[in-house]
């Protein structure tokens, strides 16, 4: 014990000179994960970060910070110093905060380090549902208005965007039962509490394989490699081409104003970590499409994603404030 104490005291005395002499990172980097432990964002970040730590030569301490649809974590990083020692590990939600009236900050206040991967939405139904395809489902809803129960995860979540796409092409008279995440909603689907759930493909792929839920349609232009037999929505309803490809994504961000040196080092580290074979296998297994983009390319992706989705939601009448008020141009 006393030896630790002595070394700590000695270290304190020497710090001032050391800090100047070394390059970034000179201490632990704090990684703020926007969602709870065990969720998709958490799993992805905890899988990719050890690789990045190796490249950086420093450690990243990951911390889940939940609440306020991820806004608590976003504001925490936005309030911290822009020194590259506080990193936001988030998903797509902040891009809709402004139009949904959930906050006044989004990723425009941040510099993307790496957009790792994107997910594909899929529509799944309970195993005993009286329909097996998307057109059959629409026909069934037509005959039984106000009876089919759709799971949802609150305004701005993936289910609300997918439902906005559907209701902008056809009338959808169903009950929306709210859940606090696609995990609990898919559990409820298997227990028969809801009938249909728009979910991210990765979360439902094991259930589909085991037959505890039934895939209806993939919301993409091309069939998914993880579920090649499930039809795409554009094969039956080409009008969806305007919205697609669309999907939630995971990314690592720092606050605007972070020194270029830190941004460059972090970007290089995450870019290399995202190429690790284990990570690629993990993402493929969960049905995610690798992106691994940074810099201007990532910025362009974010801008386009926000324009498309915000206006889609606005046209469906689901926004609180028009995207135009925030200078989000119509695509």
């Amino acid at each position: 014990m006393s030896r630790n104490l002595i070394s700590a005291i000695v270290a304190l005395g020497l710090t001032a000179t050391v800090a100047v002499a070394q390059d970034y990172p000179t201490k632990e980097i704090q990684g703020i994960i926007q969602w709870g432990a065990g969720g998709s964002t958490d799993t992805v970040m905890r899988a990719v970060t050890p690789g990045a730590e190796g490249v950086l030569g420093g450690s990243v301490v990951m911390q889940n910070m939940t609440g306020g649809v991820g806004a608590i974590a976003l504001n925490y990083v936005a309030d911290a110093d822009a020194d590259g020692y506080t990193v936001l590990m988030g998903a797509e939600n902040p891009l809709l905060y402004k139009v949904m009236g959930l906050g006044d900050k989004d990723y425009s206040d941040f510099t993307p380090i790496n957009l790792l991967a994107r997910g594909t939405p899929i529509l799944v139904a309970g195993p005993d549902a009286p329909f097996g395809t998307y057109p059959e489902m629409l026909a069934y809803i037509q005959e039984h208005p106000g009876e089919v129960k759709f799971g949802s995860t609150g305004p701005g979540g993936l289910p609300s965007v997918v439902t906005a796409m559907i209701s902008s092409t056809t009338e959808l008279d169903v009950i929306f039962v709210p859940y606090d995440g696609d995990g609990p909603a898919l559990t409820a689907l298997q227990g028969g509490a809801i009938d249909v759930m728009p979910a991210v493909l990765g979360a439902s792929v094991e259930g589909i394989r085991a037959g505890t839920m039934k895939p209806l349609v993939v919301f993409d232009i091309e069939a998914s490699a993880a579920l090649p037999d499930v039809p795409t929505i554009t094969s039956t309803n080409p009008e969806f081409e305007a919205f697609l490809p669309w999907g939630p994504f995971f990314g690592v961000f720092v606050k605007n104003g972070t020194p270029d040196d830190a941004v460059a080092k972090l970007s290089a580290a995450y870019a290399e970590a995202a190429q690790g074979q284990d990570f690629i296998d993990l993402m493929a297994g969960r049905g995610f499409t690798m992106m691994n983009i940074s810099g201007d390319e990532a910025q362009a992706f974010l801008t386009k994603w926000q324009q498309n989705t915000a206006w889609l939601m606005d046209d469906a009448g689901l926004t609180k404030v028009s995207p135009a008020d925030f200078g989000i141009a119509r695509p």
């Binding site: 070394s7 700590a8 270290a11 304190l12 020497l14 201490k27 632990e28 420093g58 301490v61 020692y85």
Partner: peptide, 22 residues
């Protein structure tokens, strides 16, 4: 448990990293 307590005026993060490199 790597809980990052507020460092305030003491640069303990840097000190710790330095001890570790040592």
């Amino acid at each position: 448990f790597t809980v990052l307590m507020p460092a305030g005026i003491v640069p303990e993060g840097e000190a710790l990293a330095w001890v570790r490199t040592l």
